[in-house]
Design a protein around this nucleic acid. Structure first.
Lengths: 156, 156
DNA sequence: CGTTAAGTGTTATGTTATAGCGGTATTATA
DNA sequence: TATAATACCGCTATAACATAACACTTAACG
């Protein structure tokens, strides 16, 4: 029942095509720089810091300064193509940029991998709890929690 | 039914006495420095950055370097006397250091105030969801979500 | 094709956090 | 109580994360 609620396994080419289509649809410019940043985040397959992205540009022979990368990330985030993991200072691809986001990020304390897990139960519990506390939450909330992923549990 | 599940309104003297007792009980040293850091966090009544704490020491005429404050905060956190809001890079007092922590942090986007709201429903939903994703979470999880507090909603 | 807005390069700087060393105070142990 | 072991803290330096501000280029749109 939860088996198809996980995201995170789209292949890079598909993700890129989807991102491009989404931007075209919205009249947003998927420039080479933004495309490259997105591609790097997709290829990483796990959350990256902005400075790790800078380092990968350097490997390419490129040499952008931090603001360049941060601006691209902000653009991608604004269009739902990546998420910022605030608790990790890292950025991660979103594989379902057009779907609603009710759920949570599960981040493995050991290997660092993050899974975006859709679950209306969590979203509802959060909203109910927040309302009881007098808080108004945005429609989409994506809390981040740290734990151990299955692989790392198995590996003791 | 949720009316007594909020924390955050203990007066400073009580909080200090409680912290001191808890440390004595555990054989942990509640040194003047740690006491002072705790006191500053309590008095603030809202989440503070480490550098804001440093600034308050400076007002006192003190002059500690960052590691001094970070170390004290780590100690206090280890004993459950403060929480680190990872998404905010801020630290906030915990008013119920001996009780279990199932719930969430509600942080106001506008005024910055944070409320630690106990709610087993949220904790359960998170654990259920995490298990479905193959993750193992620590017993106590305290996700942070941003929204608008009642006061800031009222003030438009 | 010229005007405007958006995007990017670049420099500089601000903010948050930690490594590591050496000295002092406290605790444990004999 | 002497002394060994440990915990604590001051301090310097630097790492890691993030943004302000301005100049220049390119794309969008009449």
């Amino acid at each position: 029942m939860h088996t198809d609620s996980v995201h995170g396994h789209t292949d890079p080419a598909t993700a890129l095509a989807r991102a491009e289509a989404l931007c075209r649809e919205r009249g947003a410019r998927f420039t080479p720089l933004r495309r490259r940043v997105f591609e790097l985040v997709v290829e990483a397959g796990q959350p990256l810091t902005a400075y790790e992205l800078l380092a990968r540009f350097a490997e390419d022979g490129g040499n952008p300064a931090p603001p360049t990368v941060y601006r691209a990330l902000e653009f991608l985030q604004a269009h739902g193509l990546v998420h910022r993991l605030a608790s990790q200072n890292r950025w991660v691809v979103c594989d379902h940029p057009s779907d609603p986001h009710g759920g949570l990020f599960l981040v493995c304390r050991t290997c660092g991998r993050a899974v975006e897990w859709a679950d209306e139960g969590v979203a509802q519990a959060l909203h109910t709890s927040a309302r009881a506390a007098g808080f108004q939450l945005p429609v989409e909330v994506l809390p981040e929690v740290e734990g151990l992923c299955g692989d790392c549990v198995d590996a003791h």
